[in-house]
Design a protein around this nucleic acid. Structure first.
Lengths: 244, 244
DNA sequence: CGCGGCCTTGATCGCACTCAATTCTAGTGG
DNA sequence: CCACTAGAATTGAGTGCGATCAAGGCCGCG
């Protein structure tokens, strides 16, 4: 708890005032939960939406925490991890700009997984009480939530089918394609250990070997000296992802 | 389409008439979608809910089918399978009495997976149009649908964490615990091939070997001669499932 | 009785885990 | 500015687990 309080850095007051109206004109609104809301709906949001900025490694919520709020990712990447009784953990989802996190805590009253910032992250904090109010009187938000449920379920099934079966090479390729690429085909990945946890109990050395092989084969080109940023041959990755 | 039509055996007319009122007093209603509906809500269901009975192997819906209806499982078991581009397939869920299937097709307009009967099954057919009508004016059904979304997401995450990591022994034990056991600890499993697909690309021979080992160790006792029905030492299975 | 499907069991092989050593970077403090 | 440290990635060697190939058995069915 202390850890969370110390890490959550609320933006300053003057910045919050500006945000009040910004929600309407948010850059990621088209993909976020409030996509279809009308001006009438926005009238009902009296208080400004809190925006929080977190450092890499910060815990957004823990398994078992009371779900007081959901979060929309504005910038950066977030991992969702489930911890098994024996201590091993599996990462079951990764979220980027526009994604909603904590949805299962909205239906249950508690979160059922841990959310951790993978990079520096900026989030919008959506109190559950506010969402419940809005949902009761806005069919647009109902539709938005339904779409988010669908997206969450689709994503979970995609991880089951794409990241858990086939050769390690194909699975790593599919994982790499899940990191958002910029217009110049650059991708920023996470630690080898986290990549292994995303693939389901794969050793970090195995991931490292595959990444090295991809570089030898010209599929990846390292752009930094710590193995986190690459230029990717996306067509080649898709080919590798398809067979295996 | 022809296949489905030939396999779907609608119950006879007199039986349907009886079902009209039976929905209110359904044995599995407490766990099914209509759990919290009031008499007032039921008034809105003018037509009787179709009940269908299918043979093992029957396809309930296919990936890509227009989602005209969802189904509640009354009896038996159903598998949900996603097919990969290379032909391999992974089973991403298994449903039993009380479960709702096809939910993601309710939000999208098409089903995104294939549903196949594992045993002889009995289903209630819930037309999407009916659900949409009810959802618009019954907050109870909204809550019910939300609960079903949550259950589907939880289940998907459980498969990711429990069935995809750890030793084969532990994973098979966790899978066996997912089959419903009767009061005398008897479980009925599916084919070795399907069990392998549930565990994520595991060879059927490997599953067979683990099942044989469990019998040698006294964890399972075969009750038929085709390897489908067993008496299980559930405590031992839970122990094996925990460490691995 | 023969046939096909499914389960079982055996033998072999290769991929990925494990243990271990090395390199590189970023951060810290003298 | 440089030595030192901690964390992460890389690379190597050896091993074991599970995939693959193959053969045989059991059951239900025509």
């Amino acid at each position: 708890m202390d850890i969370k309080a110390s890490v959550l850095q609320r933006v300053s007051e003057w910045e919050r005032a500006a945000l009040d109206d910004e929600c309407r004109h948010c850059a990621i609104r088209s993909s976020a939960l409030f996509a279809e809301l009308t001006d009438e709906d926005f009238e009902r949001i009296h208080r400004p939406i809190d925006r929080v900025r977190l450092a890499p490694g910060a815990v957004i919520f823990n398994d078992g925490d009371a779900a007081e709020a959901l979060f929309t990712v504005r910038r950066g990447a977030v991992k969702i991890e489930h911890v098994l009784p024996d201590g091993r953990s599996r990462i079951t989802a990764m979220h980027h700009a526009g994604d909603l996190i904590g949805l299962s805590g909205y239906a249950a009253r508690r979160h059922d997984a841990r959310a951790v910032a993978l990079t520096e992250v900026e989030l919008c904090r959506l109190p559950v009480s506010l969402l419940r109010e809005l949902e009761a009187c806005s069919p647009r938000l109902q539709a938005g939530l339904e779409a988010k449920w669908l997206a969450a379920l689709r994503e979970a099934n995609a991880w089951l089918t794409e990241l858990s079966v086939g050769s390690i090479g194909a699975r790593v390729a599919r994982l790499l394609l899940k990191f958002p690429a910029d217009p110049e085909d650059r991708i920023t990945v996470c630690s080898r250990q986290d990549m292994g946890a995303m693939l389901g109990g794969v050793a970090l050395e195995t991931v490292s070997r595959v990444m090295s092989r991809f570089q030898r084969e010209g599929v990846l080109e390292s752009l930094d000296r710590v193995g986190r940023v690459y230029r990717a041959d996306l067509a080649a990755l898709r080919r590798i992802a398809a067979d295996g």
